[in-house]
C-alpha cells in the first residue's frame, strides 16, 4: 500500500515487513481513535456559561471500565503482535539453515572485509580469499555468514535483506540470508564506529548460479595448494 521500504530480496524480509504492517494497522487505529477523541472533547466540551462539568472521579468500577477494557484489549493485541513477531524473529535470527556457502564478515574502521574459505572449504588456510567491501553470493542459496569485528562495534546492515547484526570484537556472531533476486545492492554500517562511519559502505552482488560459478573461477585462487602467496585481492 505504501512504498516506504526499500525493495525486499530476501526470503525472510517479507516476514519482517508483514510484522511491521500488522503493527502499523493496529497502531494506526489506536492513533486515529486517540487523537480524534482528544480533539472531539476539546471542542465539544468547551467551557460555556451555565454548564457545569460532570463530577466523575473514575473511582467506581463501572466508570473505570472505560479505561480497563481498552487496556485489556491492548494487552490481547500485544500478545498477538508478539506471537507474530516471535515467529519472524526465530526464522531470521534462529538456526542457520544448512548451507555450503560460508563467508566471514569482518568489520574494521572503516571497511567490511569478506573472507571466503577458498577451494578447500576451510577458513584459516592459505587459499582463503579476502575481499574488501564486496560480497558475492549466488541467488536462491542460503548464505551462512559469521560476523566479526577487528576493533570497535559495527553493525552489518543490508537494507534489501532486512538483515542487521552488530559486529562485536572477540565474538563470532552467526547470521544468514537467501537472496531472491540478482543485482547489485548496498551494505551499510548501522552502529557508530568513528569518524569514517558514513564511509563504511560495501556492495552485495547477487549472481545467477552460472555467473557465480564463473566468478569463482575468475577470482578464487586455484584449487591446487599454491605456494606462499597471500591471495589478498585489493580492489
Amino acid at each position: 500500500m505504501f512504498d516506504w521500504f526499500p525493495q525486499n530480496i530476501s526470503t525472510f524480509g517479507g516476514d519482517i515487513d508483514s510484522v511491521f504492517w500488522l503493527i502499523f494497522y493496529i497502531v494506526g487505529a489506536g492513533f486515529i481513535l486517540g487523537e480524534a477523541v482528544i480533539i472531539y472533547c476539546a471542542i465539544r466540551y468547551r467551557r460555556k456559561a451555565g454548564r457545569r462539568a460532570a463530577f466523575i472521579t473514575g473511582e467506581k468500577m463501572s466508570e473505570l471500565a472505560w479505561v480497563m477494557v481498552p487496556a485489556a484489549i491492548v494487552l490481547i493485541l500485544d500478545f498477538g503482535i508478539e506471537f507474530a513477531g516471535g515467529e519472524a524473529w526465530s526464522k531470521v535470527k534462529g538456526e542457520t539453515p544448512a548451507s555450503d556457502i560460508k563467508v566471514i564478515v569482518t568489520g574494521k574502521q572503516f571497511n567490511w572485509n569478506f573472507t571466503y574459505p577458498g577451494p578447500d572449504g576451510t577458513f584459516g588456510t592459505d587459499d582463503d580469499l579476502l575481499l574488501e567491501n564486496e560480497l558475492h553470493v549466488p541467488v536462491r542459496k542460503v548464505v551462512d555468514i559469521t560476523i566479526k569485528s577487528e576493533d570497535v562495534l559495527h553493525s552489518f546492515f543490508v537494507p534489501v535483506m532486512r538483515l542487521k547484526q552488530d559486529a562485536i570484537p572477540g565474538r563470532s556472531i552467526p547470521a544468514w540470508f537467501e537472496a531472491t533476486a540478482t543485482g547489485q545492492y548496498e551494505i551499510g554500517c548501522a552502529e557508530l564506529c568513528g569518524y569514517g562511519h558514513y564511509t563504511m559502505r560495501g556492495f552485495l552482488f547477487v549472481h545467477t548460479a552460472e555467473d557465480y560459478a564463473k566468478w569463482i573461477q575468475e577470482r578464487w585462487p586455484p584449487a591446487a595448494p599454491s605456494a606462499d602467496s597471500t591471495n589478498v585481492v585489493q580492489l
Binding site: G34, R46, R51, A53, G58, P70
Partner: peptide, 16 residues
C-alpha cells in the same frame, strides 16, 4: 494505556 485513557477521560464532559 491506562494513564493516557484516564487523561482523556478527564476531558469527557468537562468545562474545558
Amino acid at each position: 494505556t491506562i494513564i493516557l485513557l484516564a487523561m482523556i477521560a478527564t476531558l469527557w464532559k468537562g468545562a474545558i
